[in-house]
């Protein structure tokens, strides 16, 4: 079994990388996100979220419901900054 197991499809993060970080003591989703960009891509954690939470839970001997996901922030999909500026200008008038 030498194939890669992809956990985050947006940023090509593998299960091996996630497990290595967890073994180094990074046992929250937010920490792993900052180090790998998992959860920051176009899907905003919809593929990797529960997979990483499950890994964290297993490593900490917890249940998945006891593991925190990341903080959700707008926008949930990519928006061109020009469009945001246009709407801001419209609202100023």
């Amino acid at each position: 079994m030498d194939g890669k197991t992809i956990v985050c499809r947006c940023s090509d993060v593998t299960l091996k990388e996630i497990r290595k970080l967890i073994s180094q003591g990074y046992t929250t989703f937010e920490e792993i996100k900052r180090l790998t960009r998992s959860g920051m891509g176009p899907c905003q954690g919809k593929t990797c979220g529960q997979l990483i939470m499950r890994e964290i839970a297993n490593a900490r001997g917890q249940k998945i419901q006891d593991v925190k996901f990341q903080t959700n922030r707008p926008p949930v999909v990519g928006v061109k900054l020009g469009l945001v500026a246009e709407e801001a200008r419209r609202n100023e008038k």
């Binding site: 926008p75 928006v79 061109k80 469009l83 709407e87």
Partner: peptide, 19 residues
């Protein structure tokens, strides 16, 4: 794409209109 504390929501329509 967003729901804010003051109840305002933001919408992206056809990737060309944001309001």
């Amino acid at each position: 794409v967003g729901v804010f504390e003051d109840g305002v929501i933001t919408v992206l329509e056809k990737e060309e209109n944001y309001f």
